[in-house]
């Protein structure tokens, strides 16, 4: 399943200023603050029903929209 659109909607709600489509380093470029990252994890759990285990909440899995989508797809398959 592709979560791209839902994910973009969640991200827009958290911070409407950012250009998520092109950004390849959401954390390094400080597009998302740490608080917004926590909100993102909470919203993914609430809206998409995917609970991200703590050991998967690492910068490598949250660099860009594409990378987050891959993580979500992997977790959804495992579930």
């Amino acid at each position: 399943m592709n979560y791209r659109e839902e994910l973009l909607e969640i991200l827009q709600d958290i911070n409407s200023e950012a250009d998520y489509e092109t950004c390849q380093d959401l954390i390094g470029e400080e597009v998302l603050t740490s608080f917004e990252m926590v909100m993102l994890v909470a919203e993914i759990s609430q809206q998409l029903g995917i609970s991200i285990p703590p050991d998967q909440i690492v910068p490598e899995n949250f660099r860009s929209v594409d990378v987050i989508c891959e993580l979500l797809e992997r977790l959804a398959e495992e579930e």
Binding site: I27, S34, F35, V38, P54, D55, I57, V58
Partner: peptide, 28 residues
């Protein structure tokens, strides 16, 4: 580093690596 607060495993690793004994944090 502030970004560590979003990455729980890395945060704990950092605290242990630096042997942090005391914190004065905001509840958030």
């Amino acid at each position: 580093p502030p970004e560590l607060f979003a990455f729980p495993v890395r945060l704990v690793e950092f605290l242990n690596e630096h042997r942090v004994t005391a914190i004065f944090w905001v509840p958030f």
